[in-house]
Design a protein around this nucleic acid. Structure first.
Length: 680
RNA sequence: GGCGAGGUAGCUCAGUUGGUUAGAGCGCCGGAUUCAUAACCCGGAGGUCGAGAGUUCAAAUCUCUCUCUCGCUACCA
């Protein structure tokens, strides 16, 4: 047994801008949880740290959109995320949050300390400022016309139409995405982290695993994608990076004259790991510094591939600049998980949300853990499909693992009343199977320490396969008629395998292993031995039927269409441009309007279409009084076949927009247009 | 555009420093079996390893060109 160590394991802080989906789980949280459960089972001292990242411009924007305060937004999401983690069985030591006072103190202190050590530089520049909203605008929140392709909804950092990288000042007609106002240029001063100064030691640390000329970690254990990306950053020359922002939501810059400025979330967020550790230590009578400042502690960050440079370059620089902190010995970054043939997308609502899975499949978190580990994107993007989920649960968990345990337990009850039989004389096959148990354990442990969780889980499943094959080869149900002693040996060994499975699967399927221990009637530290009474047979896993899977696929496909407005109707079938040009839509002015004599909901109007003056009947009487719409400019579909409505011929259709509650609004030109002007 | 990672059986993935008929699990087909959730067990079929060229006695593996996917590209977080 190797001696125990102290570990600080972090999982990327989820951004409190929305709930968690399966991609988040497969990418960072599940592998971290497996690793932590493994470390704990080996007796190590582990702080497993996570929490909500609650700052940044995206949250303030969302708050504005929804008419809430940023605090309300993060409070809501923090609760949803935290509950989902708990229900799913991610075993954090603490799930903290960056809006907490202890985090603000910690981040502030960190900034001050580095500032005192002259670890930062300060620079002044001109940036766009929205006078109405009284705030500086991040590049992403400036919209204007692309100077290269004339696309008029290009962002300040990039044009999504032609893909060119832009600077906000490149845009023609820049507009604030928040208010629509034209922003002005205003001088502002920011703090920068001069990363270029850190290139030399970073290179040695990453490439050779050496820090201050001493062994720090084995770079061969790092993933290719992580090293590759870091190396390319350093090779291209690191630049000073701004660590403050002009925003009112976040950790205030603790310097006089820096009012209205906050720490950039990527300076603030990783410090969240430290503040969370402090809070956990306080609650549990520990010393947080043991986990961050002692050389014998090991720090490991579990993240997704989009976070690599922040955890493998920027945060290490910050820690090193401070001087007292340890650096990560590994940053196992996973690639991304796709879903049913497409990228997971929050904005398109193409995702399986963790909290919804838990609601739809109560108590079946281990099935999801198993599948997500089986397809974990460890070396490349991988794909989750519901059919695959069903197949893996039914053909592997149920048929191999669950089935082996069940047949062993059932046989033991049938032949020996549930009393563990004695291990009698062993033949070659028995010895081989017995030897496979420690071998499997060793192999699984080795793979876990190499962060190869997918292979490790497959290896664990192999032990269940060995069990099934053992029963098929020895056929105790036949032998029972002729050689009961032999059957005793077989079932003793089979029960030992069951027990081993409950240990070996513990990091992967914690709930199942707990259930299995109950079936075997084993309390912790107890082991299977002759005359031990096992519990009743109970199925570890249930088969998943087709209709359940089809319902999930249907739900996914429907929710995808909802987009930002869940009640909006699905898109109609695609049409050609020719189809569109067939519609003749013009600007017109309402000349007269009166209630339809024979209908409550209809107005009879005369409209000047620029071509002619015609009568149109429209069902808007409940939304507009006749007198208030006279003189209004509207959009009219003029080549629609005339139609009699309650006795009056209507010659065209006035375009209306309808909201979720059925309220109507005219679609009118935003400034006066000649009647007859074409809309296209 | 630049950089990084990836493209291997129907699906999800392994393939160590180039070396005999390219592997595993699942699916599929066939067989056997009945203790078990029609489960298990045995056998079989399936791949010009993204495309093309080159180096070599020998290339999935090394080089070049091309192509597709994802990520990063420094003020999106």
């Amino acid at each position: 047994m190797s001696k125990t160590k102290r570990y600080t394991i972090t999982a990327a802080l989820p951004y409190a801008n929305g709930p968690l989906h399966l991609g988040h789980i497969a990418g960072a949280y599940l592998p971290a949880d497996i690793y932590v459960r493994y470390l704990k089972s080996q007796g190590h001292d582990v702080a497993f740290i996570c929490g909500s990242d609650e700052h940044g411009a995206a949250i303030t924007l969302r708050a504005k959109k929804e008419g809430k305060t940023p605090q309300q937004i993060v409070d809501e999401n923090h609760q949803i995320i935290k509950k989902a983690f708990t229900d799913f069985g991610i075993d954090f030591s603490i799930y903290h949050r960056t809006s907490s006072p202890i985090h603000h103190e910690t981040a502030t202190g960190f900034f001050k300390d580095l500032n005192d050590k002259n670890a930062f530089t300060q620079e002044t520049s001109e940036q766009f400022y929205d006078e109405k909203e009284q705030q500086f605008l991040a590049d992403r929140y400036i919209i204007g016309t692309c100077p290269k392709c004339n696309y008029d909804n290009a962002y300040g950092d990039q044009c999504e139409k032609c893909g060119s990288t832009l600077s906000p000042t490149d845009l023609i007609n820049p507009k604030s995405a928040i208010s629509g106002n034209t922003p002005i240029l205003k001088e502002t001063s920011h703090w920068y982290l001069p990363m270029n100064k850190h290139e030399d030691w970073l290179r040695k640390w990453l490439e050779e695993g050496k820090l201050d000329n001493q062994f720090h970690h084995d770079p061969k254990l790092w993933k290719k994608n992580v090293l590759g990306q870091c190396k390319s950053w350093i090779d291209n020359g690191l630049q000073a990076r701004s660590i403050t922002r002009d925003l009112d939501w976040g950790v205030k810059v603790p310097i006089e004259g820096a009012e209205g400025k906050v720490l950039y979330v990527w300076f603030d967020a990783p410090i969240g790991y430290i503040s969370a550790t402090k809070e956990w230590a306080k609650q549990n009578g520990k010393n947080w510094e043991d986990y961050w400042k002692k050389e014998d502690a090991e720090l490991i960050h579990f993240i997704g591939k989009d976070n690599i440079v922040f955890h493998a370059i920027i945060f290490p620089i910050i820690l090193k600049a401070h001087g007292d902190y340890i650096l990560p010995t590994n940053v196992p970054a996973n690639e991304f998980l796709n879903l049913e043939g497409d990228k997971i997308s929050t904005s398109r609502n193409w995702a399986v949300w963790l909290h919804e899975y838990l609601a739809d499949f109560p108590g079946r978190q281990d099935e999801l853990r198993y599948v997500l580990t089986s397809i974990a994107p460890e070396t490349k993007d991988s794909e989750f499909t519901w059919k695959d989920y069903q197949a893996r649960v039914n053909n592997e968990l149920v048929a191999i693992f669950g089935n082996f345990v069940n047949r062993t337990v059932v046989l033991t009850h049938k032949y020996f009343n549930g009393l563990t039989p004695t291990l009698n004389k062993c033949d070659e096959i028995d010895d081989e199977v017995l030897a496979a148990i420690p071998k499997a354990k060793a192999k699984v442990n080795e793979l876990i320490t190499q962060f190869k969780f997918r292979d490790a889980q497959t290896e664990a499943m192999t032990l269940a396969r060995i069990g099934n094959k053992y029963l098929a080869d020895t056929e105790p149900w036949k032998l029972i008629k002729t050689d009961e002693d032999k059957v005793k040996t077989i079932l003793n060994i089979s029960l030992q395998i069951c027990e081993a499975l409950s240990d070996i699967f513990l990091p992967f399927l914690p709930q199942t292993c707990c259930n299995l221990k109950k079936i075997l009637n084993l309390k912790s530290e107890e082991t299977i031995s002759p005359q031990h009474q096992i519990g009743e047979a109970k199925l570890l896993f249930q088969k998943i039927e087709n209709d359940v899977i089809e319902a999930q696929i249907k739900k996914l496909k429907e929710s995808n269409k909802k987009q930002s407005n869940p009640k909006a109707n699905p898109m109609k079938d695609e049409i050609t441009f020719d189809d569109f040009t067939k519609m003749d839509i013009r600007t017109g002015t309402i000349l007269t309007a009166e209630k339809h004599p024979d209908a409550d909901k209809l107005l009879k109007m005369t409209v000047d279409t620029g071509i002619d003056v015609r009568t149109i009947v429209s069902g808007i009487a409940e939304h507009y009084a006749p007198e208030e719409i006279i003189g209004k400019q509207v959009s009219v579909l003029i080549n629609l076949a005339p139609r009699k409505i309650r006795g009056i011929v209507s010659q065209g259709m006035i375009l209306m927009a309808e909201d979720n509650e059925g309220n109507l609004a005219f679609v009118s030109p935003e400034k006066a247009i000649d009647n007859g002007g074409e809309i296209r």
